[in-house]
Amino acid sequence: MIKDKISFISSIVFFILSGLVYLDATTLSDFAAVFPLAIGTILVFLSILLLVRSFKLEIKIHNDSVLKLKIILLVIVFFGWIYFLERSGFIITSLIAFNLLVLINCENKTTIKQKIFFMTAGTIFVLLLYFGFKNLLQVPLPEGLWFRH
C-alpha cells in the first residue's frame, strides 16, 4: 500500500513539527510570529504532498550498506569523549578516546605493530593540537572539573 515508507514517516514527522511551530507561534507578538506561521503553513502543505506521494511512487535513495556495530561503538565513544571532556579534562579524555577510536576502526588485518604506531602518532597529534590551541590561539581548553580544588 505505502510505496515509500521512508517518505511516509518523514512526512508525518514534519507534519508534527509544523504543529509544534504553530504552538510556539501562539506565544509570540505579531511581528515575531509572521515568518514562523508562514513557513509552518508551507511545511504543512509540503508534508501533505509528500504523504500523498508516498502512496503513489518511490524515489529510491542510494544508501550503501552499513556496519552497524562499528557505528554504534563509534557513536558511544564520540559521545563519551564529549561528555567527559569537561569532567576529566581535555588531555586525558582525548588521549583515551582517540586511542579507543583507533582500535575500533582497526580492521582485522592491522598488525599489533601498526596499531601501536597509530596510537603513538595519534597521541603526538593530540598533544600538538592541544598546546597549539591552548597557547597559540588562546583557547581555554577544559582542565577537568574533577581536578579542581
Partner: peptide, 27 residues
C-alpha cells in the same frame, strides 16, 4: 519536495532564538 522541506527546515532553524523585531524568544 524533500529539498523544499529541507529549505523550510533551514528557515525554521534560522528563527530559533531572539527575534530581531519583537524581541521574543522563539522556537
Amino acid at each position: 519536495i524533500k529539498s523544499l522541506i529541507g529549505a523550510c527546515l533551514g528557515l525554521l532553524l534560522s528563527m530559533i532564538g531572539v527575534s530581531v523585531v519583537g524581541g521574543d524568544m522563539r522556537l
